[in-house]
Computed example of a mutant assay.
Amino acid sequence: MSRQNLLEVAAYENGTTETNSNLTKYGEWYGLNGVKWCAIFVSWVFHHAGYPLGQIDKPKGFHYCPSGYMHWKEKGCFTDDPQPGDIILYDFHKQSGQIADHTGIFVRWIKRGSSFEAWEGNTSKHGDTDGGHVMLQDRYINSVRAFVNPEVYGYNF
């Protein structure tokens, strides 16, 4: 298993769409279907790549972006140098009190320190954070609340 394997698991899901409102195989697996599913998608990818995130919101990982943010903040997992396979927590809406409103998996820098690619669930070609699709997105650093090394890879990567 490797970070590359994790990215391949995410890439294999490219083009997957929800049925009806937020109904997905990811939500079904997680045990919470019909809700916004970006974090559930990230949890699913890590699990199926052999790197389960463990108990955050539920035993299979996280479904609420602010919970993930607080969990990894408390564990000291934030990084300024994201590597492929790290988690991204976004703050697109900059709402008072909201610390993260979307998440994805870092793939690579397009322009270091400025723009990057990320695998995301529940997004769209317009960059929506509730868009119903799995796809590779181009994003900018100004939307990032935190890059996270979730400490599931061990030290041999």
Rank of each mutant, 00 (worst) to 15 (best):
M1Q: 15
S2H: 05
L6I: 06
L6M: 09
L7P: 01
E8N: 12
A11V: 09
A11E: 15
E13G: 14
N14H: 13
G15H: 05
E18S: 04
T19V: 11
N20P: 04
S21G: 15
N22Q: 11
N22L: 12
E28I: 14
W29E: 07
W29Q: 05
Y30W: 09
Y30I: 08
G31E: 08
G31W: 06
L32Y: 13
N33W: 00
G34F: 03
V35M: 03
W37S: 01
A39M: 04
I40P: 08
V42I: 07
V42M: 03
V42D: 06
S43M: 04
S43R: 10
F46N: 04
H48K: 12
A49C: 09
G50S: 08
G50F: 03
G50W: 03
L53D: 12
L53R: 06
G54Y: 02
Q55M: 13
D57Y: 07
P59S: 10
P59M: 07
G61Q: 09
H63E: 14
Y64R: 09
P66Y: 01
S67G: 06
S67F: 02
M70A: 15
M70D: 12
H71A: 05
K73Q: 14
E74N: 11
K75A: 13
G76D: 05
C77R: 15
C77M: 11
F78C: 09
F78T: 05
T79R: 08
D80W: 06
D81R: 15
P82G: 11
P82V: 07
P84G: 09
G85Y: 06
D86T: 10
I87F: 09
I87E: 04
I88F: 02
L89W: 04
Y90I: 01
H93P: 04
K94R: 08
K94V: 00
Q95L: 13
G97K: 00
Q98A: 07
Q98S: 08
I99R: 00
I99Q: 00
H102V: 00
G104D: 05
G104W: 02
F106K: 11
F106M: 05
V107Y: 03
R108T: 13
R108M: 14
W109N: 11
W109V: 03
I110N: 13
K111C: 15
S115N: 09
E120I: 04
E120Y: 02
E120D: 07
G121N: 03
S124R: 02
H126M: 14
G127A: 07
G127D: 05
G131A: 09
H133P: 11
V134A: 05
M135V: 08
M135W: 05
L136H: 05
Y140W: 13
I141G: 01
R145T: 03
R145V: 02
F147I: 02
V148F: 04
V148D: 00
V148S: 01
N149W: 03
N149A: 09
P150Q: 06
E151V: 05
E151S: 14
E151L: 10
E151Q: 14
V152T: 07
Y153V: 04
N156Q: 15
F157N: 15
